[in-house]
Design a protein around this nucleic acid. Structure first.
Lengths: 354, 354
DNA sequence: ATGAAAGCGCTAACAC
DNA sequence: GTGTTAGCGCTTTCAT
C-alpha cells in the first residue's frame, strides 16, 4: 500500500519499475488523456505499490507556480485575527492552495521587507497581509509594492488608491451602534474607544461623533475615553467617563472585551443595565450572548473577511496567469450588523429606561 | 535598491553581472569564508542592485531539506487552538522554520492520509499534529506512522507508546479544581463535562470522580451532566443537574464557556454565586476574570504547548540529520494551575448581587 | 580562491 | 501514444 523505505520515491523509480519514461509517468500523474489505457493502468499500479507521491517543490520550480499563498497575521491569541485565519484556511483549501504562515509578534515596528522577502523566497503565488492597520505599519509598502512579483491583498485598512483591500465597514458599525442608542431615546451617549493609533478604533469613534452631530447632540471630546481593548481598560474608562459626566445614560464601547469591563463596573457599583446605563459593544464574540445581562453588539463576520480575501487574491493570480487584463485594485467593504440584546433594550418593558 | 522587473532575479544573472560563476555567488550568499574579500564585495553590490533573493524552493530541492514544518490544526475559531498556533508560530520563527498550515474543517472523520500526503508533497521536515484527540481520530496513524519519512509530534492526546506527544495534564487540572472545592468544605460537587468523545473531557471528568472517591463522597453518575463546550449547553446542564440534586452546592465545569452559561442561569434564577453555588471553570480564557462574579478556573498555557511542540520537533529533526542516535519518543505533560476567584471563594468579593 | 560539470525531481517542447 | 532532450534555480563535488 504505502512506501516501505524512508527515502522518498521519485518519478524515475516509478518509470523504471513500470518500464516507461518519466514523461509517461508524469502524464499519468497529471491525468493527461494521451496515455494508452493499458499503460496508464500499469503505471498506476506501480505508483500504488511504491507509494509514489509527486514532489510539489520540484513541480513548483519548473512551473514557476507554487499554488501557495503567503499569509501574514498578528495577534492570533485574539478572537478576530484567528477567526479571519479560519476563513482564510477554509477557502484556500477549497480553491486548492496551500498556506505559508507568518505571524508577527507586534502589530507594528517590524521590518516589512524581511517578511516579504521570506515569503517571496518561498515562491508564494500571492500574499494576504492580514495585519490590521495601526500607527505607521503601512509605511514602507508604497515603494516596495510596485516591484513585487506577486499580488497582495490587504485586510482591515483605510482606502488607498492602487491597493486591494478587504475590510469590515467600521463606520457603518459605529453608526449602527450609536443610532440604536439614539433610537432608544438616549441623549447623552458616551464612547469608549480602542487605542487611537488603531485605524479601526478611529473609524468607530468617527462614526459615533458623526451620528451625534447629526442628532444635534455634539458634546466634544468630553464624552469619549480611550481604552486599550482590554476588559480592565473598559472598567477604568467607564469610571472616568461617569466621573466627568454622571448624566451619561448609554455608552457605545469599541469592543466586547471592554464592554465586559463596563458590565463588571456596573455590577460593582449597583448600576442597573440597561436601566441606568445602556451598553452596546463591538465584534460579536460568542460569549457576549451569555454576559449578564447579554450584551448588545455589532457583529462583524471575520471569518467571511478571510474567505473574501482569499477569493480576491486567487482571482487576481489566475487573471494574471491567463494574461487577461489586470483588474483595477479595489476595496471591498463587508457590512457588520447590529445585534440588540438586554444590555441595550430592557427585555421586560420595551424601550424603557431609568 | 530593489528589483525593477517583475521576473524574479536568479543566481545566474547575478553571476553574469558580477563576472563570476554561479558558484561564487552561492558561496557569498551562504556566507562561506573561502571567497576573496574583493570578489565578495563585488557580488554583494550586484545582489543589492538587482534585488536578488535566493529561491528557497530550489534550495530545498537539492538539499532535501526545506526548513519547513507542517502544522495541522482544527477549530481555529476557538481560543485554545489559536493560542497554541500562536505558540507554534513564534517558536518556529525563532528556530528558523517556516510553517505550512492545514486546518481541518472537522475534528474527526477526515482522511488522515490525504492531509499527510499533501504536507509531504511539500517536503516539510516535520509535522505537528495539533488536532485534539477525539472519537477515533487517531485511528489510521498507526500503520502510516512507521513509514513516514519525517517525524511527527502530536498535541493533546493520551499516551501511546512510540509517539511524541505534548499535552496539558488534564487529570491534574481536574484534580486541582475538585480539591479546591472540597477544601472549601463542599460535600456535594457536581460536574459538567465536555462531550464524552473528547479525550480531554474524559480526563477532566475522571479526575473529578477520583477526587470525590478519595474524599469518600462517591455519588455515581447522578452528579455529572454532559455539555458540548458551549455556553448554552452549560446553562442547560446546570438546570438538569439541580433538578436532579437540589443539594448540589458546587460545580466543576469542563470549560469557561460552559461556566459562563452556568453563571447566566444563576443570575436568572436568583442563585447567588458562590454562596448558593460555587463554580470552577477550565481553560483560563482572559474574559473569565471579568465575568460576574469573576470566574475561578484552571489555567492551561496553550501558548506554551505550541512552543514546546516546536522545540521537540525541531530537536528530533536535527538529531536525525546529525545521524546521532534517534531519541526515544516521549510524552511531555504541561501543568495547569488553579486560579481562585470570587465564583468559588466568597471572601474575594465584598459585593452582593441584585 | 574560483570554476565546470552534474544533478535534485519534475515538466515543456519537440521528436517519432 | 511515447520517448528524448533540455532546463527550472540552486548546491555539491571535484578540478584547477
Amino acid at each position: 500500500m504505502s512506501a516501505v523505505t524512508n527515502r522518498r520515491v521519485t518519478i524515475k523509480q516509478v518509470a523504471k519499475e513500470a518500464g516507461v519514461s518519466t514523461q509517461t509517468v508524469s502524464r499519468v500523474v497529471n491525468e493527461r488523456t494521451d496515455v494508452a489505457t493499458e499503460t496508464r493502468q500499469r503505471v498506476l499500479t506501480v505508483i500504488e505499490r511504491l507509494g509514489y507521491q509527486p514532489n510539489a517543490i520540484a513541480r513548483s520550480l519548473i512551473q514557476r507556480r507554487s499554488f501557495t499563498l503567503g499569509v501574514v497575521t498578528a495577534g492570533l491569541d485574539y478572537v478576530g485575527p484567528s477567526r479571519t485565519l479560519n476563513g482564510i484556511t477554509s477557502n484556500a483549501e477549497v480553491l486548492g492552495y496551500t498556506l505559508v504562515l507568518k505571524e508577527l509578534r507586534e502589530f507594528s515596528g517590524y521590518d516589512i521587507n524581511r517578511i516579504l522577502d521570506d515569503l517571496l523566497a518561498r515562491q508564494v503565488d500571492g500574499i494576504i497581509w492580514a495585519v490590521t492597520e495601526m500607527g505607521d505599519n503601512r509605511d514602507g509598502f508604497a515603494e516596495r509594492l510596485s516591484t513585487l512579483p506577486v499580488p497582495v491583498v490587504f485586510l482591515t485598512m483605510r482606502d488607498r488608491p492602487g491597493l486591494n483591500i478587504v475590510t469590515v465597514d467600521n463606520r457603518l458599525g459605529g453608526r449602527l451602534a450609536t443610532q440604536h442608542l439614539l433610537d432608544l431615546g438616549h441623549k447623552v451617549i458616551g464612547h469608549i474607544s480602542g487605542p487611537r493609533d488603531w485605524w479601526e478604533a478611529r473609524r468607530r469613534k468617527q462614526a459615533w461623533c458623526l451620528a451625534l452631530d447629526e442628532a444635534g447632540l455634539t458634546d466634544g471630546d468630553e464624552l469619549c475615553v480611550e481604552g486599550n481593548w482590554s476588559s480592565e481598560s473598559g472598567g477604568q474608562a467607564i469610571a472616568k467617563l461617569l466621573g466627568r459626566r454622571p448624566d451619561i445614560s448609554a455608552v457605545f464601547v469599541g469592543n466586547d472585551q471592554m464592554a465586559l469591563g463596563v458590565l463588571l463596573y456596573a455590577h460593582e457599583n449597583n448600576l442597573r443595565v440597561p436601566q441606568h446605563l445602556a451598553i452596546v459593544g463591538f465584534d460579536g464574540i460568542p460569549e457576549a450572548e451569555y454576559f449578564w445581562p447579554p450584551l448588545a453588539t455589532i457583529e462583524q463576520d471575520q471569518h467571511e473577511l478571510g474567505c473574501v480575501a482569499v477569493s480576491e487574491l486567487v482571482e487576481i493570480i489566475e487573471a494574471r496567469n491567463t494574461e487577461s487584463a489586470i483588474e483595477e485594485p479595489k476595496t471591498i467593504r463587508l457590512q457588520p450588523k447590529l445585534i440588540p440584546r438586554a444590555s441595550s433594550v430592557s427585555t421586560l418593558s420595551n424601550n424603557h429606561q431609568q
